[in-house]
Simulated assay, not measured.
Amino acid sequence: MELISLAILGLLIVISPGADFVLVLKNSLNHGRSAGIWTAIGISLAITIHITYSLLGISYLISQNEMLFNAIRYAGAAYLIYLGVKGIFFSDNKTDLQGDTAPSKSGKHFLAQGFLCNALNPKTMLFFLSVFSQVVSTNASDNHVALLYGAYMIAMHFLWFSLVAILFTSKALQTRLLNMKKLLNQLCGAGLVTFGTVLALKS
């Protein structure tokens, strides 16, 4: 597969709506722009994990071991459902939205959320397995293309999700989102629960 095609494929995967997008949106709306960006950093760091085991061939072994693969799948599903339930039942009625103010919790908290959300997603693992099979060389010393592609994917995840955090905490959207905060929280929560449930039930 040509590198340009791989680059376009990677971009489409990054911007397609999924659990990562919903989590960044939820954290940005509730805790401010900084929280959303910390979540984006966590997601980007998780990509390094996927890249590492793809280069080492571990992802192939995981995908061939049904028990281990299912353990990762259920752990990821449980975490998404947990985050979703929190969003549905613990949404507040406050009518203020956070802009670029400091988050109410430590940045490490949101970084960990983003990291776990992405790292425990077996769909991401299988994507990197399929893509890196196109760029990984059998000669370990000749994997500069794979490393460059990995760096590209890390950068795309960070830039896209940081952009999401910035856009949804911008002044232009504040008034439109002001009276929808609780509903948006509940929709984000329902989305995470749905992603988690589908992940758990998918054979």
Rank of each mutant, 00 (worst) to 15 (best):
M1D: 09
M1N: 12
I8K: 08
L9Y: 09
P17G: 09
F21D: 04
V24R: 09
L25G: 04
H31K: 14
R33V: 05
R33P: 05
I37L: 06
I37S: 05
W38C: 13
T39L: 08
G42S: 01
I43G: 04
S44A: 15
I47Y: 02
H50W: 06
I51G: 01
T52K: 01
T52R: 00
S54C: 08
L56S: 05
N65T: 15
M67N: 14
F69R: 07
F69W: 08
N70M: 11
A71S: 14
A71I: 14
A71H: 00
R73M: 03
R73C: 02
A75L: 15
Y79W: 12
Y79I: 09
L80M: 15
L83R: 10
V85N: 05
K86Y: 06
K86C: 04
K86P: 02
G87P: 00
D92T: 14
D92C: 06
G99R: 08
G99Q: 04
P103R: 13
S104H: 12
S104L: 13
S104G: 02
G107I: 04
A112M: 15
F115K: 00
L116Q: 08
C117Q: 10
A119F: 12
L120F: 10
K123W: 08
F127P: 02
S130V: 11
S130P: 03
F132W: 04
F132C: 03
S133L: 06
Q134N: 08
A140L: 13
A140Y: 10
N143P: 01
H144D: 07
Y149Q: 04
G150N: 09
I154S: 07
I154L: 14
H157L: 08
F158S: 09
F161E: 09
A165K: 11
Q174K: 15
R176S: 11
R176T: 13
N179Y: 12
Q186E: 07
Q186R: 15
G189D: 00
A190W: 09
G191D: 01
V193S: 11
V198K: 15
A200W: 12
S203R: 11
